[in-house]
């Protein structure tokens, strides 16, 4: 059982809320982190822990776009397409990725490494175009930068170009 393996974490999560159901999103996050998507058995398990029916878990899961009901690629490339990023070229980012990986939005590469999505605003409007890959942000993308990110991810599973604690513009050196 998934949650048995994270007993301490589950207990810590539950302890934060006076009403059990509040732990639903955190537990779903945990499940998705582990399995890459929210499986039916995870939903059932969580329902049980929180005294909910599976339907109650399901309706909540499907409201939030970050939860996947099916497995996706190891790296989830999410390119923001909202107006602010679009003004600075996000549509091209999609084209670059498409060119490099041969996948259109909604598709996954044959090696199951990359899934491409276009998404709405990710809160990085001043540093667009950008994409989020799993937990990390990559901003002010160029074709070359996208290429490097994808190569690094494929090779190393990580990439040093990801954004750290955010500050933009950087203060001018005095």
């Amino acid at each position: 059982m998934l949650l048995d393996r994270f007993k301490n974490e589950v207990e810590a999560i539950l302890s934060r809320y006076p009403v059990k159901r509040s732990a639903l999103l955190p537990l779903l996050n945990l499940a998705q982190r582990e399995e890459g998507f929210v499986s039916e058995s995870a939903m059932k398990e969580i329902a049980k822990v929180l005294d909910l029916t599976p339907a109650q878990v399901f309706e909540t899961v499907t409201f939030y776009t970050m939860f996947h009901l099916k497995p996706i690629g190891k790296f989830h490339l999410q390119v923001c397409k909202s107006l602010m990023c679009a003004l600075v070229g996000s549509d091209e980012v999609v084209v670059w990725i498409q060119k490099k990986l041969g996948i259109a939005p909604g598709q996954t590469t044959a090696d199951n490494l990359f899934t491409l999505s276009v998404v709405e605003c990710l809160g990085s409007c001043g540093t667009g175009p950008m994409m989020q890959v799993n937990d990390d942000y990559y901003e002010q993308l160029s074709e070359e930068k996208v290429g490097r990110v994808l190569d690094d991810l494929k090779r190393d599973g990580t990439c040093s170009l990801k954004t750290g604690p955010f500050m933009y513009p950087q203060p001018l050196a005095k």
């Binding site: 107006l83 605003c121 809160g123 990085s124 409007c125 001043g126 540093t127 955010f166 500050m167």
Partner: peptide
């Protein structure tokens, strides 16, 4: 999440 806003993040 308001498009155009990224201050809280910083």
């Amino acid at each position: 999440s308001e498009p155009g806003t990224f201050k809280d993040r910083q």
